[in-house]
């Protein structure tokens, strides 16, 4: 009951925050100079054409009215039509979302697993050279300049060595081949995914390793570990069964808390690798003044981060019985 109340309260909070973001976003986009019609630099576009188009796109209405429509549409799940593509925004997002989810969640899960595993080892060997090198390696991975790294990886592995395709998500040659089966197509995606996945993995795994290492060191000082030692349990058992599961909790939290930060990296990675996801679409739509699409993608990202934070909190409490909901 307590849990349900807590989730309910948080959901209301999230709804309010979301609404504020929605409003701020609307104002930002409308107050900015220029509109999608201004961008058309074609001597054939007469001022009359422009006025007509603006009227047709509904951009001539008073801003208050536009805002009301905007909120009403959002509540009813109508995200409008993209100025750039002329397609419903929902369609575009639904088309791009799975790609982002695939790349992003895979990279987060893989890097969290590796980070936890290696962080555990590093903590266990604190002070030894393994620990030092792992820490330095993790720090380097974590601070390397991502887009630069991505381009170098493309050059090295996709061009020089030629192991992977250059960019994109699928190769046209495979997908238009009527004989290509499911396995071939699936493999094609995996093949394209390895480099962007590797880039994101490197960036994330470093920080997870560091968090796991610190948290493991703390855990090892806890009483119950001492008790376990006193009981004469094997060191390996203590490490893997007693310390590690508890120490991994902060990693879980940090996945949630640093999600906004990871999304920056995700958008950069998608942009450099031409991965047809939400992040790339957002960067692209922003520079195109495609308000409906940019707004919806940004709100989607905000909503995901907000909900992820809630999930992390609940999960954290669930995994760690010492925590109570306030």
């Amino acid at each position: 009951m307590e849990l349900r109340k807590y989730i309910f309260r948080r959901l209301i909070e999230i709804a309010i925050i979301f609404f504020v973001i929605l409003t701020v976003l609307f104002l930002l986009f409308r107050l900015a100079p220029g509109d999608p019609v201004t961008r058309m630099v074609d001597p054939n576009m007469t001022p009359e054409d422009a006025e007509h188009l603006i009227e047709q796109l509904g951009l001539d209405q008073p801003i208050g009215l536009q805002y009301l429509y905007y909120v009403k549409n959002f509540v009813t799940g109508n995200f409008g039509v993209s100025f750039h593509y002329g397609q419903p925004v929902a369609d575009i997002i639904l088309n791009r979302l799975p790609n982002t989810v695939l790349l992003f969640t895979t990279s987060i899960i893989l890097s969290a697993l590796f980070g936890i595993f290696l962080g555990k080892i590093a903590a266990w060997r604190k002070g030894e050279s393994t620990d030092t090198w792992m820490t330095i390696g993790a720090l380097i991975c974590h601070t390397v300049f991502l887009p630069w790294l991505a381009l170098i990886l493309i050059w090295l592995f996709a061009y020089k060595v030629g192991w992977f395709p250059l960019t994109g998500m699928i190769s046209a040659e495979v997908w238009i081949d009527p004989e290509a089966g499911f396995l071939e197509k699936a493999w094609d995606i995996v093949h394209h995914m390895i480099l962007p996945l590797g880039t994101l993995f490197m960036i994330h795994f470093g920080s997870y390793l560091l968090i796991m290492r610190s948290s493991m060191l703390d855990t090892l000082k806890e009483d119950y570990i001492l008790t376990a030692r006193a009981k004469g349990l094997e060191e390996k058992t203590i490490r893997n069964h007693h310390a590690a599961p508890n120490a991994a909790l902060p990693v879980v939290t940090s996945v949630g808390l640093s999600l906004a930060f990871s999304i920056n990296g995700g958008a950069l990675t998608e942009t450099v690798f031409t991965w047809p996801g939400i992040g790339r679409e957002l960067v692209f739509s922003v520079s195109n003044n495609d308000y409906p699409l940019a707004q919806a993608s940004f709100l989607l990202i905000a909503a995901v981060v907000l909900l992820a934070n809630l999930v992390v909190d609940v999960l954290y409490a669930y995994l760690d019985p010492r925590i109570r909901y306030e």
Binding site: A260, N264, A267, V283, A302, V305
Partner: peptide, 11 residues
Amino acid sequence: ADMIMVMPTLL
């Protein structure tokens, strides 16, 4: 703070 925290700064 919560609200600003969910914003990806770069974007």
